[in-house]
Write a protein that binds this DNA or RNA. Structure first.
Lengths: 150, 150
DNA sequence: GGTGGCATGCAATTTTATTGCACAAATTCG
DNA sequence: CGAATTTGTGCAATAAAATTGCATGCCACC
């Protein structure tokens, strides 16, 4: 991964819909060379996938919420079980087990409060392993990107 | 936005590198019709962008951390100023102001601990408006997607 | 100083996206 | 209820883009 690869990755992280010829010109390569590099980065798994990113509001999911979770039993298998359950929820975009005072953190994309109610009902019902959970809402977004700096 | 648009958006959120003809076949449309729908979704801003998603480990950023921040002064302009400062940091992938006990939450993508040290030094120096902050690390990732359910 | 491996550019080829057009479906309006 | 208008569709032709073979150049390693 040399300087040119990094430039390409940065550009593709910002806009993967550009034509190969366009990218090639920007990094100073011929289209064929450029394409082969991108192919190589794909094959190597550096580029994991290419996806469309939607506007949340226009997709009808403008509410973003964060739930931190404290489990009854903290063993690895219990944490994993909880994460698996959370991951199955379409409204859950990120599900992590974390260090510190709580065990897990969920990031949610919601249509409305009803959806949050239904979701907490499913994830934190009586017979679940959840001791307590804290819900916070995102008021303002200063940044939200998938871009990884190189 | 009918049923077909939603199907297209779901497919494109999962893999935007597929050919138009391929997508068209899957949703049961002709290539031209399919293309025009995607174009319309782009023009309407429902599709905000198309990006390459990198493998964090292979891009040299395997440490994910979350910082919750409590500010000295909580006024809107102070919150905004802090978010702007945080947003400028390349290692910060998400920066939100939130409801509840703390004022802001940052999601980080780090190379190593040194980088975290340098970053906290920059964001939480003496003359900053930050009263206290809590750092937690992501141990395990159960889910991490950009996909918004429709 | 030679040699193998790898990346490059060019040009030809193939694949894919794009557009004009005629028609069908749905919606609006009289 | 039916005509008019808008909107969406498929087909086929065209344009654009990606992809490949090949010859050359560049390094790293003998």
């Amino acid at each position: 991964m040399d300087r040119i690869d990094k430039r390409l990755l940065t550009l593709l992280q910002q806009d993967a819909s550009r034509t190969n010829a366009d990218l090639a010109a920007e990094v100073g390569l011929s289209p064929s060379s450029c394409l082969r590099r991108i192919r190589r980065l794909n094959a190597a798994g550096v580029i994991e996938r290419v996806v469309a990113v939607l506007n949340p509001a226009k997709a009808g999911r403008s509410v973003k919420a964060i739930i931190t979770v404290e489990l009854e039993r903290h063993g690895e298998q219990y944490v994993r079980r909880f994460l698996d359950m959370a991951a199955k929820e379409p409204a859950v975009t990120q599900a992590y087990s974390v260090s510190g005072a709580t065990d897990a953190l969920l990031m949610l994309r919601l249509k409305d409060m009803e959806e949050l109610d239904a979701l907490t009902e499913r994830l934190f019902r009586e017979e679940s392993n959840v001791a307590r959970y804290y819900t916070t809402f995102v008021i303002r977004t200063g940044k939200d990107t998938t871009e990884i700096p190189l």
